[in-house]
Design a protein around this nucleic acid. Structure first.
Lengths: 188, 188
DNA sequence: GTCTATAGTTGGATAGAC
DNA sequence: GTCTATCCAACTATAGAC
């Protein structure tokens, strides 16, 4: 694994564990085993390091999102599969977790991957819902875009509840509650 | 306003603006106008300061939660009122925002107010839903506890989406999507 | 109770040798 | 490309005077 590679991976780990503010270039050096001079040779500083890490995480999340509801089954089944997908609930979302950091939100370049990721995710889910509605799987009253936002919000909010409770239970509960609500819109 | 009072309020502001890691005793001193020695006379250090601030915020959120769905109207109306309540969406939730900080989650004393707040909030909403179901407002298939978790998660997740987009729109959308889903369970 | 002084550590980065 | 040296500000707190 190349040097830049190791730096990016170490930064991704630290961003997830300690957040943006809690992640220091020093810690990245220790975690990656890369020296000071070497690190600053490859990256300008903390924001540059974070940008590379965030871009990679965003790319991976996007890829996973496009793979997942791309599977077979009815639209409702695909949404359920997305909601019940295995997640390390207590560690939280690599992308959503950064939305709390003022430095991230204030920097347009750092914030953009967050916005794009959630935009695409909502768009992807909305497309599945729309398709399902057109096939008569859902009642006509279901609003694909709004419902997609709800679905993504439940996942992100589930992380918050789970961490607050130090247990994945509230996450699961929120997800199952949503699935039950969606079922009422299903005409199968 | 007393000295301790000013310290707590300054800490609450900073916790919201900068998070736990980003909030330093120094900044609290500057914001509150209280000197170094004075601050350490009243509070042991950063965790003690944060604990006092978090407890107060938790108490206020709890009070608001008990006042809000205690209003008149059907259960569905009360839930809608809660979901549409005015919020400073881009600033995020004082309590939920802290769930990202490892230092908060790792400290049982600091985490407890978060857990309690969300437990009570879910309990309160579940009670409203249960009442509504018993009065025949909702279909029998509606699970009060799970649905309450979903409702709270949508709000918390809405904050995340809004901050990522630097716009309150995704929050509103997620909330309206949820309301539409709930309507399908309403027998009115 | 409040103030000033002090102190060790980390953060975030630059400079220049190799 | 990588290493070591160096830098200054901020963090978090303690000590002791008033």
């Amino acid at each position: 694994m190349g040097t830049a590679e190791r730096l990016i991976e170490a930064t991704r780990e630290l961003l997830r564990e300690r957040g943006y503010v809690g992640t220091s270039p020093r810690a990245v050096q220790r975690r990656s085993g890369v020296g000071q001079g070497s690190m600053y040779h490859h990256f300008d500083g903390k924001p540059a390091l974070a940008l590379a890490a965030v871009r990679r995480s965003a790319g991976q999340l996007r890829a996973a999102a496009e793979a997942d509801p791309g599977g077979e089954g009815s639209a409702a089944e695909r949404v359920r599969a997305y909601l019940r997908r295995e997640r390390s609930v207590l560690r939280g979302c690599r992308i959503g977790g950064l939305a709390r950091a003022p430095d991230v939100v204030a920097d347009p370049e750092l914030r953009r991957p967050l916005e794009e990721t959630f935009d695409r995710l909502r768009g992807r889910i909305a497309a599945v819902l729309r398709e399902g509605r057109e096939r008569g799987e859902f009642t006509a009253s279901l609003d694909p875009a709004a419902t997609a936002a709800t679905i993504v919000a439940v996942v992100q909010g589930g992380y918050v509840l789970a961490r607050s409770a130090a247990s994945p239970d509230p996450f699961r509960q929120a997800v199952e509650g949503l699935i039950a609500l969606l079922d009422a819109h299903t005409t199968a």
